[in-house]
Design a protein around this nucleic acid. Sequence first.
DNA 1: TTATTAATCTAGCGACGCTAGATAATTTCA
DNA 2: TGAAATTATCTAGCGTCGCTAGATTAATAA
Lengths: 195, 195
Amino acid sequence: MGIAERKGRDRAEREQRIVAAARVIAEREGWDAVTIRRLANEIEYSQPVLYAHFENRTAIVSAVAVEGFQEFTLALREAALGATDTGNALKAVALAYLAFALSRPALYEAMFILPTDLRFAVGDTRPELRAAFGALAAVVAPFCVDTDLMTETFWAALHGLAALEGSGRIRPSARDARISLVIQAIVVCGNDASA
Amino acid sequence: MGIAERKGRDRAEREQRIVAAARVIAEREGWDAVTIRRLANEIEYSQPVLYAHFENRTAIVSAVAVEGFQEFTLALREAALGATDTGNALKAVALAYLAFALSRPALYEAMFILPTDLRFAVGDTRPELRAAFGALAAVVAPFCVDTDLMTETFWAALHGLAALEGSGRIRPSARDARISLVIQAIVVCGNDASA
DNA sequence: TTATTAATCTAGCGACGCTAGATAATTTCA
DNA sequence: TGAAATTATCTAGCGTCGCTAGATTAATAA
């Protein structure tokens, strides 16, 4: 009697198709092009079907963001693993952060810029988001006394670099130099109680 | 024959009323509430009149952003002037930056987050935007060899802190500690050629 | 087979940005 | 001064949006 199971699978698959379509359209044409009608066409169902999966459009953006956080975490972990020492790991993660943000701008936008349902830095924060924070914290920890504090600040610096470069406000050509500056600051200042 | 002048003044005043209304509504109810119809009601003209002043809605957001940059520059300069030494100036400016961003979130959003017509870091960048960058550069300069590079990085760090705190992603309670960290990094690392 | 429930669709509401074309006010000039 | 040209402004509406009520079809249970 696997009928219910099959239905569940079909439903999950359709949901995944919605999220995937949203992501593809956003990356190709920007988030404004991700409309409910467009997604409905894409999955070959009528519009109300989308509302059986997601409460509203924002929830779809949020679902894409969660996917993004998963891949983001993997990318950061991989960068850290490929490094030979803790200093290299820090820099590799910073480079991976910016490469991620700038190579998938729409995904990054969903994760960090657009309004979503996601709640951060509170008790019920989703594990995908916690994991991303953890991946940053892991490479920062060797260089500081207050890991949470330093991770937040490191994250903010990287987000600032990504957001400003992504919107054309700072010179792309100086990206590496800016990252080096951030890394150096953490290495030099991290273990200072006066911080 | 001051008729043309009076008309010019009337027109400029009406334009200012549009921008002011947009700003007030955005700050009170968010940018989504800033619709052309709403603004038309507010200034007591029909909708097409708005298009005699601005090419489209984005141009209105941009106009608010430019106003924001003017006030932003003043706020940063004032903070720098009130300081006793260069280190204090740096910290005062950083604090003023975050206070500005978090106390007028809609204005800051127009300046740095929403899509606008504004062009940055290029030849035809508007003087209001250059001035804001200059106000940051002025307090950073004493601490570095490459002022542009350091200013971009400082700015990115502050923007990251503002954006992440403004969207609830990092703890408001740790704001001062994060700023101290950023300031310390610049003071300690700035004059290092290895950066 | 029929009654019930679940799945899906059609059609439309109110609001959006924006604009064509009509009207009213003003200015120009014979 | 009075008709013609120009400018200022409005009404009305196009196409699109997110979202949903209510109808319809398909699947399940009795």
